[in-house]
Design a protein around this nucleic acid. Sequence first.
DNA 1: TATTGTTATACTCTATAACTATA
DNA 2: TATAGTTATAGAGTATAACAATA
Lengths: 139, 139
Amino acid sequence: MIDPLQELPGYLLRRASAASLVDLNRRLEGLGLRHTDAALLVLIDANPGITQSALGKVLDIQRANMAPIIARLDARGLVRRKPVDGRSEGLSLTGEGQAVLLKAREVMDSHEARLVAKITPDMRSVLVPLLKALWLREH
Amino acid sequence: MIDPLQELPGYLLRRASAASLVDLNRRLEGLGLRHTDAALLVLIDANPGITQSALGKVLDIQRANMAPIIARLDARGLVRRKPVDGRSEGLSLTGEGQAVLLKAREVMDSHEARLVAKITPDMRSVLVPLLKALWLREH
DNA sequence: TATTGTTATACTCTATAACTATA
DNA sequence: TATAGTTATAGAGTATAACAATA
């Protein structure tokens, strides 16, 4: 089997990401969360009062797609909505939301640790700046 | 805005991959291909006679999902099927398929070049082994 | 029994358009 | 006019189950 894709960084990036994501979602299953839910809990916790649309901009999720996600977190009692002005609502975590976040952070942290454990210390030292650079849009 | 996700390699991996994939798919649009189609053309070209199920194993696409993808490439006249035994068919590129692959390779190569151009030479030297290592399943 | 290709189907994720109410 | 939230909907991508034909 000749696989010319094996030397393409873009392809490898995609496969590594997909594999990591499957792993993370599997491990979050027990908490009834998807990776996006976990990311949202982290962001709301770090920025109490943040709005749906601001969260959507950070995570590149459109307003229309944010609505049902936040509605679900709200219905589960993890998130609280408090009107900021007449049209937007500031979000914050409930006590239950904070408790779930704690467990989600454990899952995320061990997931990250497993990921980083796969590479050498040399690679580890450039990993974050490397991925941030790859993420940047060209102009 | 405090964003604790910015320091998580797994999160950055996902965002970098998603951004890169959107870019690639946009650039393949003119050829009427998705990134998966392009990957399949590359693999079929490099391994004439390969079967659907073998391709699915390489790309982690299930048999059930391969069927309509190959059927579409066949209907477009890019791929030819030749029975290997009574149940499996060896795939190869038609002349038209090879012509489209040439253009797809141009798109892919420039996409890869743009991606690699975002990072420093230091990072470049470890990029492929780094991503391969991240991709590996733990045991 | 196991494998190849296929169909049907359901679920998630994503994208667009349109509506409301508010600024 | 522009923005925040929402609803509806369509398109991908992905997952499982089941079937026929063949090994």
